[in-house]
Simulated scan of single mutants.
Amino acid sequence: MSAASSLASTAPTPPALTPALVWLMALTCGLVVANIYYNQPLLGEIGRSFGVPDRQASIVATVTQVGYTLCMLLVVPLGDKLERKRLILLMQLGVALCMAAAAWAPSFGVLVGASLLIGVFSAVPQLLLPMAAHLARDEDRGRVVGQIMSGLLIGILLSRTISGYVGAHLGWRTMFSAGAAAMVLLGAVLAWRLPTDRPGFAGSYASLMKSLFTFTRELPLLRRAALVGGSMFASFSVFWTTLVFLLEGPPYHYGSDVAGFFGLIGACGALAAPLAGRAADTRGPDYAIGIGIGLSGLAFGILLPGSTWVAALVAGVVLLDVGVQATHISNQSRVFSLIPEARSRLNTVYMTGYFIGGAAGSLVGGWAWAAAGWPGVCAAGMGFVALAFGFSRFYGRA
C-alpha cells in the first residue's frame, strides 16, 4: 500500500444526492464564484475612480485569484476533516463581510486588501465539488460534476455581464454591495437545505497538510492535471483580464456594460460542461482534454483579428470557454477518481495549480497588453495553450 493510500481514511456512509440538491450546489457555485469575477469588467472604472492606470488596476483581479488560491491550499483540505456544511456557512459569512468592505473602500489599497479576502472566502465551490463527488454514484460522477460545474461556469461568465451593466449605470461600488447582500441570502438557504457531511479523516491538521505533498509526489496523474489545468486557466485569464481594455479603447469605445455582455456570449460555453462530463465517463478524460486544448488554440487564432472585428471576438469567446471548461471538467473527473476518501485534498492540489495559473494569466495579460496590445495578449494566451498541450501529451506518461 502506498503512503498516499494510507493517508485516505474511511468516510461514513454519505446521504443521498437528490436532483434538487445538485441544482442547489450548482446555483451556489455560480453565485459564490461570481464574487471573484465581478471586478474584471469594472477595472477601467475602478482605475479612474482611484486615479490609477490600467496596469495597476488589473492588480485587483490578480490578488482576488491569489486569495482564492491561498484558501484552496490552506483551508479547503479541511473538507476531508471537518463537517463541510459548517465550514461552508462560515465562509459565506466571511465573503459577505468582505464584499461590503470592498463596496465602501476609501482607497485603492483598501480595495486591494478586501479583494484578497474576497478571493479567500469565495472558495466555497471547492468544498461543494468534492462533497458532490462523494455523494454521487461512481457511474454518475462525471455527469454530476459537469452539472455543478455548469452552474459555476455560468456564474463566472454572467458575473461579468451583470457587473458590467451595473457598473456602467449604477457604479462599481453598487455591484459589490449587491454581491454582499446575495451572499447573506444564499447563506440562509444553505443553512436550511444543505445536508451535513462529516468526512472520515481523523488526523491532525499538520498530517492533513503533509498529505498534500505525499499525494503530489506519488500521483503523476494529479500533477499532470494540475499543470494542464493551470496552463489552460492562465490562457482564459489572459483574455478576460484584458478584454475590457480593448473594448474601452479605439475602435470600439464601449463601456463596461458591453464588455460584460461578452460574458453572456461566453456562457454558451458552459452548456458544454455536462457533455464534457459524460465524455469523461464514457471515453476517458484524455479524449475530452485533447478536444478542449484544440478548441482553445483555435480560439486564440480567431481572436487575433478581434482588435478591429467584433465577430471574431464573439466566435473566439465561445470557442475559448468551451475548450477551457471541457479540459477543466475532464481533469476534475480524473482527480476525483484517484482516492475517493481524499477528494478535498486532491481537489486542493489540482485547484491550487489551476488558480496559480489563473493569477499568472491575469498578471501576464496586463503586461502583454501594456507591451504589445491585443496581438501580445493573443500571443500570451496561445503560449499558455501550447504549454497545456505539452504537459498533456508528454508529462507523466511513463
Rank of each mutant, 00 (worst) to 15 (best):
F176T: 06
A202W: 01
V228S: 05
L194M: 12
G200C: 04
I148A: 03
L158F: 06
L157Q: 11
L135Q: 15
A191P: 11
L227Y: 05
A191R: 13
A181Q: 08
L157G: 00
I156G: 04
A182E: 07
V228I: 12
L190T: 08
W192E: 15
S211C: 04
M183T: 00
A178L: 15
M183C: 10
F201Q: 02
S159D: 09
I156V: 14
F215P: 11
R198L: 14
R141W: 00
G179Y: 08
R173V: 01
P199Q: 10
M183N: 02
V189S: 05
R160L: 04
A168G: 08
L185Q: 06
A136L: 06
I162W: 06
M131G: 11
L221G: 04
S163E: 10
F213K: 09
L227Q: 08
T214S: 14
R137C: 06
H169Y: 13
S204D: 09
Q147T: 15
A132C: 03
Y165E: 13
S207V: 05
V166H: 05
R173Y: 05
D138P: 12
I154R: 04
V184Y: 04
G171R: 09
G200K: 01
I156D: 00
V189Q: 12
G167S: 07
G146L: 10
L152T: 11
W192P: 15
F176H: 13
L222A: 04
S177N: 00
G164A: 05
V184N: 07
L185V: 14
M209G: 04
Y205N: 13
H169E: 15
G203S: 04
L157A: 07
A225V: 05
R198F: 00
P199K: 07
G171D: 09
A168H: 07
H169T: 13
G171V: 12
M131D: 14
V145Q: 04
V144E: 11
F176S: 14
L158S: 09
G203R: 00
A136K: 02
I154L: 14
F201S: 04
A206I: 12
L135K: 09
T196D: 04
S177A: 15
T161Q: 12
A182T: 13
I154W: 05
A181S: 10
L219M: 13
A168S: 08
V228W: 00
T161V: 04
L222V: 03
L157I: 07
S177I: 01
L208F: 01
S207P: 09
L194H: 02
L158W: 03
V144R: 00
D140I: 03
L219H: 06
R193K: 09
S207H: 10
G200M: 05
S207R: 12
A178R: 00
G146A: 08
G167Q: 10
L227D: 05
S159M: 01
G155M: 08
L219W: 05
L208R: 00
L212E: 14
R217W: 13
A181W: 11
G164C: 06
V145C: 03
A182W: 01
S163H: 08
T161E: 10
S207Y: 02
T174E: 14
A136W: 01
I148Q: 09
P130K: 11
A132M: 05
D138M: 07
F213L: 15
R141A: 06
P199F: 12
M131F: 11
A168K: 00
M149K: 07
G164W: 05
R223W: 00
A226I: 01
R193V: 02
L208G: 07
Y205K: 03
P195C: 03
R160Q: 08
S177D: 00
A188Q: 13
Y165M: 12
S163Q: 09
E139Q: 10
